[in-house]
Amino acid sequence: MKVILRNPRREVAVAGNRRVKDILRELDILPETVLVICGDDLVTADHVVREDATIELRPVMSGGLR
């Protein structure tokens, strides 16, 4: 599958049908720090992403002094 990451924007490939929680673990991303977007939907950690799918891991952390 294709995984889109942000800040900076880049793409990585992950092989096989995988649960979201396993993808995050493989990429060393804490679940609380991203939204997992599949098409027009948000998906939860137990969702299985098919090998031919694309997901976006959108960071939620904003920073600096606001």
């Binding site: 942000r6 804490l30 609380e32 959108r58 952390m61 904003s62 920073g63 600096g64 002094l65």
Partner: peptide, 25 residues
């Protein structure tokens, strides 16, 4: 705007958020 402020990288508040996110996890 999804992109982060270019000056936020390295900000102390971001480091604190990362520590707290590990505790939250």
């Amino acid at each position: 705007i999804v992109e982060e402020c270019p000056f936020a990288a390295g900000a102390t508040s971001i480091a604190h958020k990362e520590i707290l996110s590990r505790m939250e996890d």
